[in-house]
């Protein structure tokens, strides 16, 4: 630290507040956050224009293939990735594993993803995210789940999709569910809001807030199955604020080209000519899985409560 952080008026600066936590997510809007498993991949992501990287041990498609228990990444790997890039570094903790989150905060990661991609540590409770100075992003399949996570202190939401499949169908389903839920509340009469909060299993004050503002109080990215530039632009046109791309980049045949193309398609999501241009000659996308034919036990999106 080279800076002097005491104000001339004598007021101590306030860290870890809602504004700085939600605010960082605001700065990532319109961008792409990429899963990386090495410092070298993190560099490639930064070179391609990623607004942040997600440091993890295995991308979701490998976690899916390997089975077993998926945990927080190795600490030295996270440190190497933090040292390698200047953009924000995110890392995943298991659902409910607040000690993994404490460790990640002490490492200086910029955002923690309490993620269903890892094996849950608690099948009833998520982390009390208000206890932390570092902001959290959490997955959601619908508006009720999103509002429960915000109620627990999440400063950013991502729709879950189905990670590691290369199949965008669940990402679309979840984004439509969240957006549709918001439109529904916005069109309600005030006396209908309590029943809606009960129906959603969501905090009443957040339902009231959405009724008056017509939007989520935090940034909402999409995630889980985005594999092509067109997928990324589809999610943006459906109303998300940006994209998480996991296996889609480093499981393609040409990660650098895919990374750059998905960044461009996320920025110019409403320009089919640009999307066409950046999609030309990309090589093969990651192999995809049919979510409908997968056994229920293999679905990651159903983790989280």
């Amino acid at each position: 630290m080279t800076s002097d952080k005491t104000g001339s008026n004598g007021h101590e600066p306030h860290t870890g507040g809602v504004r700085v936590k939600r605010g960082l997510a605001e700065m990532l809007k319109g961008g792409v956050i990429m899963d990386v498993v090495t410092a070298e991949q993190a560099k490639i992501a930064e070179d391609a224009g990623a607004v942040a990287v997600m440091a993890l041990e295995r991308v979701p498609s490998d976690i899916r293939r390997d089975g077993g228990v998926a945990r927080m990444s190795d600490v030295s790997l996270i440190n190497q990735i933090i040292a390698a890039v200047t953009i924000p570094v995110m890392a995943k903790a298991r659902i409910g594993h607040f000690v993994e989150a404490q460790v990640l905060q002490s490492l200086g990661v910029d955002y923690i993803d309490e993620s269903e991609v890892l094996t849950p540590a608690d099948e009833e409770h998520h982390i009390d995210k208000w206890q932390f100075d570092v902001p959290f992003v959490c997955g959601a399949r619908d508006l009720g789940e999103a509002l429960r996570r915000i109620g627990e202190g999440a400063a950013m939401i991502r729709t879950k999709g189905e990670a590691g499949t290369g199949n965008v169908v669940e990402a679309v389903r979840h984004m439509r569910a969240v957006q549709g839920g918001i439109r529904r509340i916005a069109s309600m009469r005030p006396e209908e809001l309590m029943a809606e909060a009960k129906h959603l299993g969501a905090p009443f004050d957040l339902v009231q807030e959405i009724h008056s503002t017509g939007k989520l109080p935090v940034v909402n990215f999409s995630a889980g199955g985005i594999a092509t530039p067109a997928d990324a632009a589809l999610m943006m046109q459906l109303g998300c604020d940006g994209n998480f791309v996991g296996s889609g980049i480093f499981k393609s045949t040409n990660p650098e080209a895919y990374a750059k193309a998905i960044v461009a398609a996320t920025t110019y999501y409403d320009r089919p000519d640009v999307i066409a241009d950046v999609s030309a000659g990309l090589g093969k996308a990651m192999p995809g899985l049919d979510v409908a034919s997968m056994p229920a036990g293999e679905l990651l999106a159903t983790r989280g409560w």
Binding site: M1, T2, S3, K5, G7, S8, N9, H11, E12, P13, H14, T15, G16, G17, R19, V20, G23, L24, P88, Q105, G108, V109, D110, Y111, D133, V134, P135
Partner: peptide
């Protein structure tokens, strides 16, 4: 220059 996200802050100036 003011550090990573956990050092992000607000203040009256």
């Amino acid at each position: 220059g003011y550090g990573r996200q956990v050092e992000s802050f607000e203040a009256d100036i």
